[in-house]
């Protein structure tokens, strides 16, 4: 299995680093970004397979980010992590652009498996 390149976006730096370390330990190639804008720039520099996006962030929101990412990189797989009830994955604007929507905080093994599933889907395209 080649290493999936994961873009991790969350405004919570501590969470970002520990998740990054743990995923890297398991062979993922992880790029971390604490803002939507920097995540977008990172995705332009490197080819990202899966983006794990937090919904509520200062500046660009998770929804705006995923729409922008999907527009620039149509094959990128999006996993949304939502910590509150305000994000509706059935929203027609985003429903077909999301691979999965996970409730935050989510179990690490579930997140890992979801990333692998998303990567497999990307490869199958």
């Amino acid at each position: 299995m080649s290493n999936p390149k994961v873009l991790l976006v969350d405004d919570e730096e501590a969470l970002l680093t520990s998740l990054q370390r743990r995923l890297q330990l398991r062979g993922f190639n992880v790029i971390a970004a604490n803002r939507g804008e920097s995540a977008l720039r990172a995705a332009r520099r490197q080819d990202v397979d899966v983006a794990v996006i937090d919904v509520k962030m200062p500046g660009m929101s998770g929804k705006e980010l995923l729409l922008a990412l999907k527009k620039e990189h149509p094959h990128i797989q999006i996993i949304v992590q939502t910590g509150h009830g305000l994000f509706d994955p059935r929203d027609k604007q985003v429903a077909d652009k999301i691979f999965s929507c996970l409730a935050k905080p989510c179990d690490f093994s579930v997140l890992k498996q979801t990333i692998i599933d998303a990567y497999n889907k990307k490869k199958a395209l």
Partner: peptide, 14 residues
Amino acid sequence: INNPLAIIGEESGW
């Protein structure tokens, strides 16, 4: 609480 909770979880996982 979600974010601190997630951090606790991930840090202990780490």
